[in-house]
Structure formats: C-alpha cells, structure tokens
Simulated scan of single mutants.
Amino acid sequence: MLVQPYLFFDGRCDEAIAFYREVLGAEVTMLMRFRDSPDPPPPGALPPGFEDKVMHANLRVGETEVMVSDGPCTGGPGFRGFALTASLPDEAEAERVFAALADGGQVQMALERTFWSPRFGMLTDRFGVAWMVMAMPNE
C-alpha cells in the first residue's frame, strides 16, 4: 500500500509548484491542465478561466511524491489535523527551509532544539499548508 498527500490550492497551484521547486527542490514529474483533459468537465463544473489551471500534477520532493491540483477541493467540515514533515540532513538546511516556508506564512513554533532534534519547528506556509521542519539528529 502507498499513501500519498494530495493538496488543493484553490487556483494558486502554479504559484505553489514554483514555490516548492525553489524552496524544496521539488521536481514536476507530471502535469495536466483542465484544458488537456480527454473528458471535458460538465458545464458549470469549473469557474470561468479555470481551463488553464492545474487539473493534476505530481511533485517529487526528495523521496516523496506529492499530488497537487487547483481542482475542486472536497470542501466541507473535513479533517484538518495534518502536517507535512520536512526532515533535513542538518541544522543549516533546516533553518533555510523553515525560513523560506515561513515567508508569507505563520510560525506556530519557532525552530529550536528539542529532545528529538537539534532543530524543530512548525508553521503554516503562504498556501495554508501545515509543515513540521526538523534537522535529523546526529547519530
């Protein structure tokens, strides 16, 4: 079994992809726009101008595949208790990634030393995605 995160960006997916490429070195392994779909959406299913938005994309971030879209989110009062975790090889890289993700976002816990990591912090980025950033402990 493989469980993967799927993130919806409410029309800002291209911006999010560019941001994660710059900050995390994300690689786009697949991208399809609504206009490229072999089956057009039913009339009225998409807001005007959405034909150039991202219907589906796959991003490789390190060893992880993350799926992203502008497409209609499941919406409603859903489960909100989640965060993506970025485990970085050292403190300097953890500090760089944390600062970049925090730019335009909101820090919940500043990057600091914990009993499990030399640097750990929590934030929500500019797209509303919750992150936990940590430096891997030296063994």
Rank of each mutant, 00 (worst) to 15 (best):
R33H: 03
R12E: 09
F8N: 06
A83T: 12
T114C: 02
F19I: 06
G71D: 02
A100R: 06
M67A: 06
A110D: 15
D52S: 10
R12W: 02
L84V: 04
L24E: 06
E93H: 06
A99G: 05
A130V: 05
Q4T: 14
A94Y: 01
M132A: 14
F19W: 00
A45S: 14
P41L: 01
P48R: 01
E63T: 13
M136Q: 15
S37D: 13
E65K: 13
C73Q: 08
K53F: 08
L59V: 14
R113T: 13
A92D: 14
G49F: 04
Q108A: 11
S37K: 01
A102W: 02
W131T: 01
D70E: 09
E27A: 01
A18E: 01
R80M: 04
M1L: 15
R35E: 11
L123K: 09
V3E: 10
N58Y: 05
A18Q: 05
W116K: 03
G105I: 08
R126I: 09
L111E: 08
L7N: 04
E93V: 11
F98G: 05
L111H: 02
N138D: 14
A99D: 00
G62F: 10
E22W: 07
F127H: 08
M136D: 15
M67K: 06
P77K: 13
P89T: 10
G25Q: 04
P72I: 12
M1T: 15
E22C: 07
T114V: 02
S37N: 15
P40E: 00
E112N: 07
A92S: 11
A45M: 11
A92I: 00
V61Y: 08
M30R: 00
C73V: 01
S117I: 04
A92Q: 13
A99N: 02
G105F: 06
L101G: 09
S37V: 07
E139N: 08
G121K: 13
A100V: 04
F82I: 12
F34G: 05
G11M: 10
T64W: 00
D125G: 12
V133N: 11
G78Q: 10
H56C: 00
P137F: 05
A83C: 12
